[in-house]
Design a protein around this nucleic acid. Structure first.
Length: 455
RNA sequence: GAGGGCGUAGCUCAGUAGGUUAGAGCGACAGUUUGUGGAUCUGUAGGUCGUGGGUUCGAGACCCAUCGUUCUCCCCA
């Protein structure tokens, strides 16, 4: 038998890690609830059909597919072989795989809304905290199983939702004590740029090239634009667009000049202005950065888009989202607008761990260890322990009669601050010895007073 | 999908140009101490050097393959 191991890109979480992760989950959850979002859970697996084609070509490749059961059935051999042929032709085949693990929380949510739109109370606000899976190659800040925390509003076109979601982001990160900036852009502006550069059909090429700017620099972007048949004049426009600098007001002003009288572009600017202006009064505008190079890979976004970046941290985005105008039409239910955001818990964890931002108070462990000093003594100790547990004090008793040395070490390693010793002498006098491991202070307490003792 | 780094004891690693029986620190266990720990000292256990081939008189070291892991690019949370 070989050594046990984990699938690539997955992890076990020990007690300390779980407690820190729970801290993040609880913080985000409580903010979601404070803003009027209600929980939803969907299955780990979806029909493959539900997921395919929603995340672009790259995304489709990264979906974890589940092999059908019963493929060894001789009666279905023909079907299975045909399925394999399709597979080698680069297509998916329901003969081989009908289900897949969810890739994000947004599409399953859209599927849910499409299935239940008749009975939902619009505008419908839901939050969802569940793992997602991607068949990506793991590296720093990238796992094959990770959690997303999503909040979405559907059935409302109001920009007030965008305003509110910005506040959700900034409130949550403030509570986590993690300094961030929220980048904001608008797909309408990118669309306008594409129009100005010769056609909407260039939007995708354009966004992909723009998205790479801060990584590969302008020269490489220019090269890529050249390859995608953008003319010199168009490249010049794009360069002007990308080199817009200054504070938010200045940037937007320059952009509006560049957009000229392009209707979509001006609308996009107006929307960003609306959100920024709204947050002047909350003071949150300080953490908002208009960034016209922000593109976001998912092409279902149609309006304002967000991305959250931890300040002074070597980490990709720790959250993202935006407005999608018609996501449910993918599932046959048109005209339900929505906007949503997502938190990447695993990356948030990594950044917080790196910067040592977890409060020390979240380590939760046993409060009192009862020593095991023999059959009679332990029985008496057990009764005392149950009384303390009734008072919600976390207690445990060492299960084996062992040397003091060993029992002390156990308490110390587990971070248990108090031990209670009931030995033959104590038992005879109906007493116990309470010892605080940290201070070393030792007190004799009568058994009848123990439940009132201040630990 | 493309390209690098690394796999030696439970953990962190050393192992010099290939040369006898593969080492250290920490940890674990035991004793010093059958009811007061954290220290010191002493001792004990623990390794098919990821796996499979090859080169060589001789391989932990060199070559090939393979698996695992990690990082970068692509893409993304």
């Amino acid at each position: 038998m070989s050594k046990p191991s984990l699938p690539q890109g997955t992890r076990d979480f020990n007690a300390a890690t779980v407690q820190k992760r729970q801290f993040i989950f609880k913080t985000i959850q409580s903010v979601f609830e404070t803003y009027g979002f209600q929980p939803l859970e969907t299955p780990a697996m979806e029909n493959l059909e539900t997921l395919m084609g929603k995340y672009g070509e790259e995304g489709d490749k990264l979906i974890f597919k589940i092999l059908n059961n019963g493929l060894d059935n001789p009666q279905k051999k023909q079907q299975t072989l045909e399925g394999l042929e399709k597979l080698f032709a680069g297509k998916t085949s329901t003969a081989l795989t009908e289900r897949a693990l969810r890739y994000d929380l947004t599409i399953p949510f859209a599927r849910y809304v499409a299935m239940n739109h008749g009975s939902l109370n619009f505008p419908f606000k839901r939050y969802q905290i569940q793992p997602v899976w991607r068949a990506d190659r793991p590296q720093k800040g990238r796992y094959r199983e990770f959690y997303q925390c999503d909040a979405d509003v559907v059935g409302s076109e109001s920009l007030l939702n965008e305003v509110d979601l910005v506040a959700v982001y900034l409130t949550a990160f403030q509570k986590l004590n993690l300094p961030v900036e929220v980048k904001i852009n608008n797909r309408k502006i990118l669309l306008a740029l594409a129009q100005i550069c010769g056609g909407e059909d260039k939007l995708i090429d354009l966004t992909i090239a723009i998205d790479k700017l801060d990584k590969i620099g302008w020269d490489k972007v220019k090269e890529e634009l050249q390859n995608k048949k953008f003319s010199e004049a168009q490249q010049k426009i794009i360069q002007n667009y990308l080199t817009i600098e200054g504070n938010n007001t200045e940037k937007l002003k320059q952009l509006s000049i560049l957009m000229g009288n392009n209707e979509v572009g001006l609308k996009g600017i107006e929307e960003i202005n609306y959100v920024l202006d709204y947050h002047v009064q909350t003071g949150m505008d300080k953490h908002l950065v208009a960034d016209f190079t922000l593109a976001r890979g998912l092409n279902y976004y149609t309006g304002i888009i967000f991305e959250v970046k931890a300040i002074e941290a070597e980490m990709g985005s720790i959250g993202g989202g935006g407005r999608y105008n018609d996501l449910t039409s993918l599932f046959g239910v048109p005209n339900i607008a929505g906007v949503g955001i997502s938190f990447g818990v695993d990356r948030i964890y990594d950044v917080m761990e790196e910067k040592n931002l977890f409060p020390s108070t979240i380590d939760q462990t046993t409060h009192i260890l009862f020593f095991n000093l023999g059959e009679q003594e332990t029985k008496a100790a057990y009764l005392q322990m149950m009384q303390l547990r009734d008072k919600k004090i976390a207690c445990e008793i060492y299960p084996e009669k062992s040397k003091f040395d060993k029992q002390f070490k156990y308490a110390e390693k587990k971070g248990i601050p108090n031990v209670i010793i009931i030995g033959t002498e104590e038992l005879a006098k109906n007493e116990c010895t309470v010892k605080n491991i940290i201070t070393g202070k030792q007190t004799t307490v009568s058994l009848s007073d123990l439940s009132n003792f201040e630990f």
